[in-house]
Simulated assay, not measured.
Amino acid sequence: MSAPRCRRLEGKVAVVTASTAGIGLGIVRRLAQEGARVVVSSRKAATVEETVAALRREGLEVAGTACHVGDKAALQRLIQFTLDTYGKIDILVSNAAVNPAAGPILSMEDSAIQKIVDINIVSAVLLAKLAVPHMPSGGSIVFVSSYTAFNPSPPIAMYAVSKTALLGLTKALAEELGPQQGIRVNCLAPGIVPTKFASALVASLELEELNKSRTLLGRLGTPGDMAAAVAFLASEDAAYITGEALVVAGGMQSRL
């Protein structure tokens, strides 16, 4: 996808978690291309440094810091780093997620269930809780969910259930933050994007073709497709949209 010509996010500051690869990296690149100053984060400091350096070579305004979203102190440091570096937060994108195990929910190890809940749900709540006091009216929060949130099914049903929770979190926070603070809260529900995280879904040519056939456009998604949707939701073009989940899945069945 070529660089966008629009600059809808000039003067804005964005924070994106899990953003050194895949969908997260695509989101950082798009937001920065549209004029935002963006904070990159992921667990490994070296990876963050490499990503920041690469994006700066593209002429983009980014900074970065390591952050393990399962550690509340690390989340606090991420928010403080953003404030120290850019002075404010206009856009928050909660993208971090894990799927440590597959199979029936009731057969899954307790530790795997707890990890899914902690990283995919609890960290999103805590991140918003820490960021919102520093966000102005007109700010935007985007939670990254999944098309599977609308129909959790094996073998990743527990992961999908955690993404269903983000749909509810989006609705709840939109109602809490909109009337009094003017902050919009929305949710991106990606379809299949063949990143490292989703590599099992394209592990063979046959499986990849099967998943392509489930779309109406005959192809799988790209990080750029997801990033374009996030940039829209974060921009003034979506000024009258809050509490919504935008499915970007090439027409894959998710809901009526």
Rank of each mutant, 00 (worst) to 15 (best):
V125W: 03
L55G: 13
A97V: 00
Y86T: 03
N120A: 06
G59S: 05
C67D: 02
G64Q: 06
K44Q: 09
D118S: 07
Y86I: 00
R57N: 14
H68G: 07
A102D: 10
L83Q: 07
G22C: 12
D110P: 00
P104W: 11
E58T: 12
A63T: 14
K88S: 15
I79E: 03
I23E: 05
I23G: 11
L55N: 07
R56L: 01
Q80G: 08
Q114Y: 04
V98H: 04
E58A: 05
N95I: 00
L92V: 02
G26C: 10
G26Y: 01
L25D: 09
V93H: 08
A18P: 11
K72G: 03
K72D: 13
L75D: 02
V125Y: 13
N99K: 09
V39K: 00
G59K: 04
K44I: 08
R56E: 15
A66N: 09
V38Q: 10
R56I: 07
S111H: 08
K72N: 11
G103L: 03
Q76V: 03
A97T: 07
V15C: 08
T85D: 04
T17K: 04
V93E: 09
A36N: 10
A131D: 10
V93K: 08
D84C: 07
G35P: 04
I116R: 01
L78E: 10
A101W: 01
T20A: 08
A14W: 04
I119S: 06
T47Y: 07
A66T: 11
N99D: 13
D90C: 00
D90N: 10
V69W: 02
E61M: 07
